[in-house]
Each structure stands twice: as C-alpha cells, then as structure tokens.
C-alpha cells in the first residue's frame, strides 16, 4: 500500500520535473550575454589561465571553495568524533582484507606512480583538466591501496593535521594578500605570465596546490579513521 502511494507521488513529481526541463532545450545557447561569457573572456584575457573551470573555482568563486574545504574538514572532524576510540594501534583494524603476496608487491609498485599522478594533476590544474580536488582524491586512493594491502601500514595523524592546517592557513593568507593593492579577497597580485606556461595565472596555481594538499590529508585521515574503528 505504502509502495503504491510512493510510486504515485513520484510519478507526479517526475511528470512535472520532465515538463519543466524539456522546455529548456538541450545543446542550445540559452543566453545572449550571460555570466559564462564574462568568465570565459576574463579567463583568457586577464588571468591567462587555460582551464576556465579552475579559474572559476579558485578565482571568481574562490571564497566558496574556502567554505567547501572547511565543510570537508568539518565532515572529517565529525567522523573522528562519532567513531571515537581511545587509542589507535598500527594493525588494529576493524576489518581485515587478507592480501596475497601478489597484491602486496603490486601495490608497492603502483604506490609511487599513483602519488606522482596525483601531484602532476594538481600542479597542472590551471593548464589541463584536473586540479586540487581531483589530485587530492587520487593521492588518498594511493594511501587506501597501501592501507588495504599491508596490515601494519599506518599514517601519522599528527603529520596529516599539520599538512592540513598549514595548507588552510596558506590559502587564507594568500587570499588576504589580495588586499595589498587595494583589491578584494583573493585578488591576483602576481604577474599573470603567458598562457599555457606552467608559471601563469598568478596565485591560481599556488592556491590549487594548497587545496590539493589539504584535500589529500583530509581524505586520507577519513579513510584511516573508518578503517580503524573497533569496539
């Protein structure tokens, strides 16, 4: 009975959603002069950054990114509080995935390559697809592989928290330095450089590297916490 009611409600909801979105059109230019054109033009003419998504995330909407990184930090702290345990011992896991020697040797071989890929992605965030969030998540994946393959592999929580705090403070300090020339928060104060060079875009590359460190530390800490939860 309840299921039929739910299906009825969802059918009405789906009909109205579809009616609303089918009128929007797919693959058409909807605005003659929208905010998209402003962003695209400023990105290439003033900031000299190749990837427009990076320039929106870090520069035009950089304050939102600061808030987002804070939300991620709060989520990790909340998890640490919920899954609180007196002491972590290395190898004291709640779940044990027993691994064979092939998995161990293979993950030892793959680990430096995964870390290198993550670092490459967040250093080249303003030139190619990718950036701090993607690179940080890939680095966390590398640590996850090692944590699963080796029972006594452990990461130091102090080191993680230092990396995380310094990256966050650096982000805010660079943002505040934008006030120097009478600009706004996160204003670009370094020379913009040439399009498609590694040192271009001023502060955007530096900030995205900091975001990469912060996200990598947070996600690694999150996985470490949930893997060591035990009564």
């Amino acid at each position: 009975m309840k299921k039929f009611l739910v299906i009825l409600i969802l059918a009405v909801l789906g009909f109205h959603l579809f009616a609303a979105f089918s009128g929007l059109g797919f693959g058409v230019t909807r605005f003659e002069k929208g905010v998209k054109d402003f962003y695209l033009e400023k990105t290439v003419s003033e900031l000299h950054v190749a990837n427009t998504v990076t320039s929106i995330v870090v520069n035009f909407r950089g304050f939102d990114t600061l808030g987002e990184v804070t939300v991620l930090f709060l989520a990790v702290s909340a998890m640490g509080g919920i899954l609180y345990k007196r002491r972590h011992h290395a190898g004291d896991r709640s779940v044990l995935f027993s691994s064979s020697s092939i998995v161990r040797s293979g993950s030892k071989l793959l680990f430096p390559a995964i870390i290198l890929l993550g670092v490459y992605i967040f250093i080249h965030g303003h030139l190619s697809p990718g950036g701090g969030f993607q690179g940080g998540a890939i680095i966390a994946t590398g640590f996850l592989l090692m944590l699963i393959a080796y029972e006594n592999f452990s990461v130091s929580h102090n080191t993680l928290s230092y990396i995380e705090s310094f990256a966050g403070i650096f982000f805010v300090v660079i943002g505040l330095l934008g006030f120097m020339n009478g600009g706004t928060f996160l204003q670009n104060f370094l020379p913009a450089g040439i399009l498609n060079n590694l040192f271009s875009g001023g502060v955007i590359g530096i900030i995205y590297v900091m975001v990469g460190f912060k996200v990598a530390a947070e996600l690694t800490g999150l996985i470490y916490t949930i893997l060591h939860e035990k009564d």
């Binding site: 990114t65 939300v71 949930i226």
Partner: peptide
C-alpha cells in the same frame, strides 16, 4: 565539481 566532494563528505558522516 564542488557538489561531488561535499556529497562524499555527507556519505562518510552518514556511514559513520
């Protein structure tokens, strides 16, 4: 891009 990362945080808190 930001919504995916936040969604992961929400999932992690819910699972814990």
């Amino acid at each position: 891009l930001t919504a995916i990362v936040i969604g992961f945080g929400v999932t992690a808190v819910a699972l814990s």
